[in-house]
Design a protein around this nucleic acid. Structure first.
Lengths: 224, 224
DNA sequence: CTTCAATTACGAGTATTTTCATGGTATTTC
DNA sequence: GAAATACCATGAAAATACTCGTAATTGAAG
């Protein structure tokens, strides 16, 4: 049950942190947008509270990037900008709620309860990603299928993480090249095919059902 | 994709209903809390919008009863009562969001998007195109007709997508050549006819009604 | 120097895309 | 209304593109 607070104003941070800890939440703080982004990507927070105006990158950009990376933690944006347009932009950037400063702490708490209520039990508090009987622990960097340990290299791990976070969607090689290898996809390489093969040997070969499927001419999908 | 609106004030109802229908939502209306409760219990709405002050039972009581019955549809409470305490009571009754009247319709829409975004499936709402009983999922790159899976190749998928997106309009071969094959249509090829034939075998052959029709001398149309 | 991860090279096998040949059907022309 | 013409459907075969698996190479870390 961890909450990430991204806010550069010390007083507000203090207020929120203390209040949350009284409610027995574990609280991480980031004073900078980029740090927040890193923390939020690495850990699987129950909830993220972020200011919009931040050093590094803005809260809006943070939302967009987190969502595009497949992070699903609820996000509450907290800001002095309170016109209807600001709210719409915030919500459409991927935020779940938008609270204008100054706000009453009790209302923030109520909105946190509302957003976390339905997740308890369903979203794992641990830093786990799952599909079928395949689990990956993002902290421990371990992967198991059907309870058995599977050793992955760093690239393989990244690749699998991307697939699990986007399960059900066909991912093109161009997208993989950009997101995992950070290269523009020139047909001169076949790293991707090779790595798909590596992954399959490890996570699918000795198991059923197969999870990593190819859609010829389109890309690859991870699904049950 | 159905929304239930529970509200006794005719003007507000009219505004919301019309706006939602423009966004292609199906809308049910209840003018009374008890009717709303019945409808919400029986149907599995994507979202419920309710006033607090209602004939029958109040919006708060409605929330509590729905949640205790295991109804999980997101609920937005809409009301003139806008003190912090009112909001807290509303959210703790089981509502997911609380919007004070008067509100801007655009903000309501943004909050609806925020609440429905994550609902279906784990990530975002599926990216579906439909005509009659034929559905295509643009993310998973899957196609079904009458619930049965149909396997398409990349080109076939592109072609079908183009037809569904432009259903009801006759598409010339010149247009298909340009948009799907990226070629200038020289009469030297009949790829298009061949692919129309491929598509028909897969999506029309074993089904009724036929969806892909020929307009001799003009092109092809997809329609019911 | 050794080891292991990451990438490249390449041939084989398969699926897809395109071409070609033929026959059928609608449309136009006389 | 019949013949000629344009247009379309279809099956099969050829050409191409795509993917897979293995092996070889590079490169970095210990």
């Amino acid at each position: 049950m961890k909450i990430l607070v991204i806010e550069d104003e010390a007083k507000t941070v203090q207020l929120i942190k203390q209040g949350l800890e009284e409610q027995l939440w574990e609280v991480d703080i980031a004073y900078d947008g980029l740090i927040g982004l890193q923390l939020a990507t690495r850990n699987n927070y129950t909830l993220i509270i972020s200011d919009i105006i931040l050093p590094g990158i803005s809260g809006l950009e943070l939302c967009r990037q987190l969502r595009s990376k497949g992070v699903v933690s609820p996000i509450i944006l907290l800001t002095a900008l309170s016109t209807t347009d600001d709210k719409i932009i915030g919500l459409d950037a991927g935020a779940d709620d938008y609270l204008a400063k100054p706000f009453e702490f009790r209302e923030l708490m109520a909105r946190i309860r509302a957003l976390t209520r339905r997740n308890i039990g369903s979203i794992q508090t641990a830093n786990l990603l799952k599909i079928a009987d395949l689990e990956m622990d993002l902290d421990a960097k371990t992967v198991t299928r059907d309870g058995k340990d599977i050793a992955l290299t760093a690239k393989e791990f990244l690749l699998l993480e991307y697939f699990i976070r986007h399960q059900g969607r066909v991912i093109s090689k161009v997208e993989l090249a950009e997101k995992i290898w950070d290269i523009t996809f020139d047909t001169g390489t076949n790293v991707i095919e090779v790595y798909i093969n590596f992954l399959r040997k490890k996570i699918d070969k000795d198991f059923e059902p197969k999870l990593l499927h190819t859609q010829i001419g389109m890309g690859y999908v991870m699904k049950k």
